Structures are given as C-alpha cells and as structure tokens.
Amino acid sequence: MKQILIADDHEVVRSGLRAIIETRADWIVSGEAIDGRDAIALAMKMKPDIAIVDYSMPVMNGLEVSRRIKSYRLSTEVLILTMHESEEILTEVLLAGVRGFLLKSDARSHLIEAVEALLDHRPYFTSVLLEKLLHDYLLNQKNKSEVLLSSRERSVVQLIAEGHTNKSVGAVLNLSVKTVETHRASAMRKLGISSTAELVRYAIRAKLIAL
C-alpha cells in the first residue's frame, strides 16, 4: 500500500485530491496537513511515499517543505501543486530537488499519472510546462551562441544558481564579495540578462547544475 501525504490549507482542495487518490485501491491518504509546519511534522512521522504539497501555504511554503524533506534525507517524492504557471516558481522547484510539478487546474486529469511517475522515481511535468521551458530555451539561445564565460564566471554562476549568496560564493571560491559581484555582473552582461531567475535558467540550460 502506497502512502500519500496531502498538504494544502484549503479543505476543499484536500478533499478533491483525496477523492482522486482513493480511486486507486493500492494507494492511501495517510495524512493531511494544513500548513508547511504540519507537512514537515507528518512527513517525518509517516515517511510517506509521496507528498503532494501546495506551493503557497501559510507558515512555511511548499518550496521550503520540499527543501526540508530533502535535507532530512527522506525517500519521499514531492509533487508541488500551484495555481500559477510561473517560470520562476518552476525554476525554484527544480533547484529544490523536486521532480514533480502540477498546476491545480490539471490535477483532475493528471494527478494519477503524476503520482505513478513519482512512485517509479521518474520526474513529472505536464507538456504545457515543458513546452514553456523549451520556448524560453530557444528564445534565450538566440544571439547567444558565441557567449563565452570565463571559468571563474562559470563557477560564480553555478554557485549562485545553487542558491548561494555573494558572501557564501566568496567563501567557497576564496574571493572577496566585491570580486564575486564583479564576476557576477560580468557574466550577466555577457549573457544579456538582468535577474537572478534568468541566471538560474541559464545555469540549467548550460548544465552547470544538476537537476
């Protein structure tokens, strides 16, 4: 029997998800959490096979719940649910080590398939999201084929994409914060980007970080 945890602060959403899950005789909803702190406590106690976690929850959001589950080395696979189709959220989710991402509007038709994939330890993203990533990739590749970062710039970009601050990047690379800022600004100028989110997406495309 596969155990599934549902974490969402809306009772109607939890009920709907439970109804879909319970159509499978070999799956059971072994717990429901109404906020991020409850989700972590139940995950630690039950060690479910799957945790279906709403991205936007009080106390601790779904992204932080996912990070905690990973840091505690639980074997639980996380499926993030969100109402918003956001590149930034998807990037954050991937960097947190989450391999399942589903829009709430798609849950009725895709939840079973998503849970099955994660139970087999396969990633799951709907085709709409994959198409969006591909579009962004092609768009950002345009006129950038000749961009070359120095090895130090690549190292700085990688660490920033992994979530390090300028200060912690400096500690890892034995550089001053000012030097890190200089390399970061140089890399962003070469790539023609202006935000950390874009820098993270570049790092994913360039395979500077593992998903």
Rank of each mutant, 00 (worst) to 15 (best):
N61E: 04
S75W: 00
S145W: 09
A117F: 10
A7Q: 02
N143D: 15
L42K: 15
A197M: 11
N140A: 00
D35I: 09
R189I: 03
L63N: 05
L134H: 09
M83G: 01
V157G: 03
S15M: 06
G163P: 08
V93S: 13
I89A: 08
I160F: 11
P48R: 07
E198Y: 02
S30C: 11
D49P: 03
K167D: 01
K178Q: 14
Y72W: 02
D54S: 05
K47D: 01
I21M: 08
A114T: 01
S195E: 02
E181Q: 10
S105L: 06
E64G: 00
L159R: 10
M46Q: 14
L134V: 12
K104Q: 04
A197H: 07
R154N: 06
A114Y: 04
A25D: 13
I209P: 06
I80W: 00
K2C: 02
V172H: 11
L148A: 13
P48D: 02
A41E: 12
R154E: 15
D38V: 01
G192F: 11
A7V: 05
L130K: 13
S56D: 10
S105E: 13
L208H: 10
H110M: 12
E162A: 09
P48I: 03
V12P: 04
L139V: 00
A206C: 07
M44Y: 07
R154L: 14
G62Y: 10
D26F: 02
